[in-house]
Structures are given as structure tokens and as C-alpha cells.
Write a protein that binds this DNA or RNA. Structure first.
Length: 266
DNA sequence: ATGTCACCTGGTAGGTGA
């Protein structure tokens, strides 16, 4: 199976690019963030016409998430159960053997701000919910825009970004808290080119200068690790005309081959 | 260079969020 996550920064603007990317890449699952569409405006007909099942959860102007899949998702959940949130940030569903959670985690704006406090509370709630989800879904994928650069090697200029939003110790502790649940950063299972990012600011010619952050992630539960054959960031859509500021992250996974009968020697 | 983009309200711009 091939799964991917992409913050599209307005699906109204990026729909043609998403349809093109789906057609070219043929993933089994794609989760989207920042659709910025109310539910009545979601372009489900366009996706379904191209052969994709959709589940979506949006709001006006900001946020908004979606789960696209070749086979329909079951047991769809919108936002974190039991966590009162007026922002549309999570969509989860079961696709084949996998529990898939797509998330648009809060940006946090700046340390010390109200939005930063919201981000911390949101991440607490996410972790508590994931602990419960993992009890019933051993094969789980959490992917999306985390708005956290986990380590200095995920930052183009760690000195300039030290203590800044996406790079604070508090945010990084939350990221490690997710790993402590038994989740694994799939990107780091493989050797990667240095200075590989998933987001580049629109300003300052950041993409041309490759000044970015790795803040979009795919975390997988332990039982999936042995079946992962690749995880990469697809920079190509960032080269489009009118691109999103984020690039998709892609993972390939297949269930382990059944154990072979032991060949008898002697 | 606070240098871009998307969306809103209420406009032929300014504010917010990222």
C-alpha cells in the first residue's frame, strides 16, 4: 500500500494539482490538510469521478481535513473524541488493515501566545486519544502537518530557528511523547538526503534556496515497521505554478509475507 | 526586506493566519 499526506493550503485553489498528483502517483490513501472549505463545498464529486472515496471535515476559512482512499474508509472519526475543539483538524478511518489518522496540528504562532497554549493542550489530547486507539488498532498510521520540526537536522537554519515556533523544546517533547507511545518516524527508517524539508515559506525565495523545515510526518505503529519499504518527500508539487507551501510525504508498506515452511536439510 | 499566499470583510484596501 502507498499512503501519503499533503497540506494543500486551500483545496479550492489546489484541487487540479491534487487530482493530477493522485492520477500520477496512485496512492491507496491520501490525507489532506488545510482544505479551508466548509463541508458543503467539498469537491467529493470530482474525487469520486476519478475513483476516490472521500471523508471530510471542514470549516470556514481555516483548517479542514480530508481522507481520500481507493477503498472506502470505515469507522470514520472527526476530531479528537472527548476534546472540545471548534477547529476541524483530525479525520480518522480504517482502510483495509490500517487505522489511518490524518491530522492538521495547530501552528501555535509563537511561544507564550494563546495559540501556543492551545497547541500544547491539543497535543496532550491527541496523545491521550492515540494511547486508546492503539489498544484496539495495532496497525496505525498517524500522518499530517505536525507543525513540529522534531530535531535540528529538520531545520535549515537551527541557530536562527532555535526556540522559535515549530522548534521549541516543548513542541519537541510532545513529538517525542508520540514516539513514546510506540510510534516510529517512518522518514527516519531510511537514509535520506541531508536538508530534505516538507515545507518552505512562500517568502524570501525559500524554496529556490532550499530553506525549509520538515514539519509534515508519517508516524507508524511498531507492527508496521518491518513492512515499510520506503518513505520520502515528493518535492515535485512544490515546483508547480501556484504551489502549496508544503510537499507531500509518501510511505510504502506491505503486510509481511507469510512465514515460509522450513526447508528440511539432511 | 515583514520579500508570499489565501481568505475574510466590505472593498476598490486592510486585517488575520500561516
Amino acid at each position: 500500500m502507498k499512503l501519503a499526506t499533503w497540506n494543500v493550503n486551500s483545496l479550492a485553489v489546489r484541487l487540479p494539482q491534487v487530482l493530477d498528483w493522485l492520477a500520477a502517483q496512485q496512492p491507496d490513501v491520501l490525507v489532506l490538510q488545510e482544505t479551508k472549505l466548509t463541508d458543503d463545498k467539498f469537491p467529493d464529486a470530482e474525487f469520486e469521478g476519478a475513483g476516490w472515496h472521500c471523508a471530510w471535515f471542514g470549516q470556514k476559512t481555516y483548517n479542514g481535513v480530508a481522507l481520500l482512499s481507493r477503498s472506502a474508509a470505515a469507522d470514520v472519526v472527526r476530531n479528537i473524541p472527548g476534546f472540545a475543539d471548534d477547529q476541524a483538524r483530525v479525520i480518522a478511518g480504517t482502510v483495509g488493515p490500517l487505522r489511518v489518522i490524518g491530522a492538521y496540528m495547530p501552528n501555535g504562532q509563537a511561544p507564550g501566545s494563546d495559540k501556543f497554549a492551545y497547541k500544547m493542550g491539543w497535543l496532550d489530547a491527541l496523545r491521550a486519544w492515540l494511547a486508546i486507539e492503539l489498544r484496539t488498532h495495532s496497525q496505525l498510521v498517524l500522518m499530517g502537518d505536525f507543525n513540529i520540526a522534531p530535531e535540528d537536522r529538520d531545520v535549515h537554519d537551527p541557530v536562527a530557528w532555535a526556540g522559535q515556533i515549530h522548534c521549541t523544546d516543548e513542541e519537541r517533547a510532545h513529538f517525542r511523547g508520540l514516539l513514546d507511545l510506540g510510534l516510529v518516524d517512518a522518514f527516519r527508517l531510511f537514509e535520506q538526503a541531508p536538508r530534505t524539508w516538507s515545507w518552505w515559506d512562500y517568502r524570501n525565495l525559500a524554496f529556490r534556496k532550499n530553506q525549509g523545515l520538515r514539519i509534515d510526518h508519517i508516524l507508524i505503529s511498531q507492527p508496521l515497521v518491518s513492512g515499510v519499504t520506503a518513505c520520502s518527500i515528493d518535492k515535485q508539487p512544490r515546483r508547480n505554478e501556484r504551489p502549496s507551501d508544503h510537499a507531500p510525504v509518501v510511505i510504502h508498506w506491505s503486510p509481511g509475507a507469510p512465514a515460509q515452511p522450513e526447508a528440511s536439510s539432511t
